[in-house]
Design a protein around this nucleic acid. Sequence first.
DNA 1: CGCGGTGCATTTGTATGATAAATTTCGGGA
DNA 2: TCCCGAAATTTATCATACAAATGCACCGCG
Lengths: 239, 239
Amino acid sequence: MKATDSRNLHGHVIRELGKRIVVGDLRPGDVLPREEALAESMDVSRTALREALKVLSAKGLIESRPRVGTRVRATHFWNQLDADVLSWRCASMPADDFIEKLVEMREIIEPAAAAAAARRRTAAQLANVELAYRKMEASLDPEEWAVADLGFHDAVLQATGNELMISLFSVVESALGMFFVLSAKTAGNFNYSLPHHLKVLEAIRRKQPEIARKAMQSMIEDSLANLHKKRKGSSKKAS
Amino acid sequence: MKATDSRNLHGHVIRELGKRIVVGDLRPGDVLPREEALAESMDVSRTALREALKVLSAKGLIESRPRVGTRVRATHFWNQLDADVLSWRCASMPADDFIEKLVEMREIIEPAAAAAAARRRTAAQLANVELAYRKMEASLDPEEWAVADLGFHDAVLQATGNELMISLFSVVESALGMFFVLSAKTAGNFNYSLPHHLKVLEAIRRKQPEIARKAMQSMIEDSLANLHKKRKGSSKKAS
DNA sequence: CGCGGTGCATTTGTATGATAAATTTCGGGA
DNA sequence: TCCCGAAATTTATCATACAAATGCACCGCG
């Protein structure tokens, strides 16, 4: 929900360098200037710079060694699932193929989550899913509906009780959110997919994992189909 | 593959505090001692301590504000998919239910990855999967086989071309590895599952996603069944 | 008595300068 | 030529000082 803190000074340095690396302005193998020089060039003290470098190092983006300097690591070392890394990547170069990768992750997680929720949900978790569904029913405008929809998916995820899945979903979703929230608002026909939601809810209530999985799957398929239709309608785009 | 660097001093502080938090020795809401005091109690300078705190903050474990101190954040803020967080969690208290969550993630990722690989694999990627399969065929002892097996799964993952999936797998796998490598070595019947591997390979070659998914799925099911059997055999454990 | 603003104290945030440790590189000797 | 050691460079760590933020108590006013 919240990336590197923007208030503090070293937070700025983290974002600045992080973006430059993720975008490709700084390439793997490149060595950064000496800490002293780099600090001066970014108008911060070496202390603040180093705190930033340590964070980037923890994200797997860089590696520093005495006498050698700090160099950008190969991409396969990066913490690709780190919220910051993901957001930097989305902020700058929303390459279409990257969005597709995010969507692919979503398509994998959500049906599996629905199945897991149907298998293990507690009574309280079921109640939350139901509550979320009711809020969707009661939504009057697309914006309200979009919020309630997110709440529904979140409730399902919570019902899995698997914090790894929850974390993965939240990271992917927040990265995708940057693109999809907008298009959601344009919809006039916003509660088309409510029947799907109902199917998911009922399957979770009755503890039927496979039915829940399939329902969630077709829900996503539908929403993606809608999205493509809209896209084709507004902007003319090949392939 | 490599968590926070152990060589450096602040790396020690990161692990020490990180573990204490993840394990539950320090609970969400708790506030840590003042930086000066904490630094002294850990025999490092305030500078080094702060670099460590910044890293833990980037992992979502803590949050520090002037005048208030640094407090442990609620677990839902944690970067659960961070390699360090995961490893700390495994290192100390390998609660059975947590292992199950990791296994669940693996069960979700791998079939999906096999399907994606079958859909999009390049010729070179297919060649790598085939090479990995050949190495499994040629394996003579369980240890060699385990390494080759990991190589096979890795090759499939690479063939998806989705770095998010690759990263997720590598994180989960390295966390699981701590438990499973051992039991793999005990097997006498180590190349039981080769037929499954072959099915996956062939499905990827022929670009048949659904077949690849199912093959990978049953491969995992079998290996888990084997594992349970072995467990029951060696240690007597209820439920 | 209650309420709001104002200053103070405390803790993190940043800066600076100095020293230690690591490691590459270069040079000298066998 | 090869090996070993000294030198140079860069990160790692430390100590200290000051700035900024902010909770809290105190004081004055209605």
